[in-house]
């Protein structure tokens, strides 16, 4: 029986959905407090289940991949809110392009630079290049440059959760109230998880986060393979 629970894809999908639903309820209970972020709480509940039942990641992901696979169509679907905000986009095209270019470079250089300062191994540094971009891009790029794709995915998720939790308090503390700025910065620094958080704050800001995430993803996918020669083993 325990063997079935550990290995069945059905159990994996069911537990993921229940963890997510519970995370939403917890988030509502704490009135959307940043620390009750649904991705963070959902992951913790899921991890608790996996550890308690002794399920390995390889067994879990056989079912989990069905949910993860929906990231593809979800990425495509971002074109819809983006198009709804076309007028706003056009008005701010140049400032947006500027901040996404500079922000994208900051994302790559800061991750690798801080990593080198902290003395992390070479393969970990390579996996850090894509820290700021959405999971599917990060995994693809990381594989191409000799990093560890799953490790890259995890860096992406962890920094996304941190970014989503910190953005509102940070911007409040700095008295930055412009929703466009909030959306764009979160999309660049904390990709889809940050964007999911920004959508809770406002729909137009979420669309900007989606745009920034997508463009930063494209930018990073092109630039990282060019810059990777500078990371010496």
């Amino acid at each position: 029986m325990l063997e079935f629970i550990r290995t069945s894809p059905l159990v994996a999908i069911f537990v993921t959905l229940v963890a997510y639903r519970a995370a939403i309820a917890i988030n509502r209970h704490f009135r959307g407090h940043p620390l009750s972020n649904p991705v963070l709480v959902g992951c913790l509940l899921l991890l608790a289940w996996l550890v308690a039942t002794g399920t390995t990641f390889d067994h879990y992901i056989r079912g989990g991949q069905f949910i993860q696979m929906l990231l593809g169509p979800a990425t495509v679907a971002l074109a819809v809110p983006l198009y709804s905000n076309l007028a706003r986009l056009k008005r701010a095209a140049l400032p947006l392009a500027l901040s996404i270019g500079i922000g994208g470079l900051t994302g790559i250089v800061s991750a690798v630079g801080f990593g080198a300062v902290a003395g992390l191994p070479h393969e970990v540094l390579l996996s850090l290049c894509t820290r700021a971009v959405t999971t599917p891009i990060a995994m693809g790029v990381s594989q191409g440059i000799g990093g560890i794709p799953e490790l890259s995915a995890m860096f992406v998720i962890l920094s996304g959760i941190f970014g989503a939790v910190i953005v509102k308090p940070l911007f409040g503390w700095l008295r930055l109230s412009d929703e466009t700025v909030l959306g764009v910065s979160t999309g660049i620094a904390a990709h889809g998880i940050g964007m999911a958080r920004v959508f809770q704050i406002s729909e137009p800001a979420g669309a900007f986060a989606g745009l920034a995430m997508g463009l930063n993803g494209l930018f990073t996918a092109v630039v990282v393979p060019l810059l990777v020669g500078f990371i010496h083993p």
């Binding site: 959905l17 991705v39 992951c43």
Partner: peptide, 22 residues
């Protein structure tokens, strides 16, 4: 699409389980 994107957070949860593998 809005109903689908509302639950974007769900789709990131499986990758979080990779913490176990590393």
């Amino acid at each position: 699409v809005p109903a689908f994107l509302k639950h974007l957070s769900l789709l990131f949860i499986p990758a979080g389980a990779a913490v176990l593998a590393y």
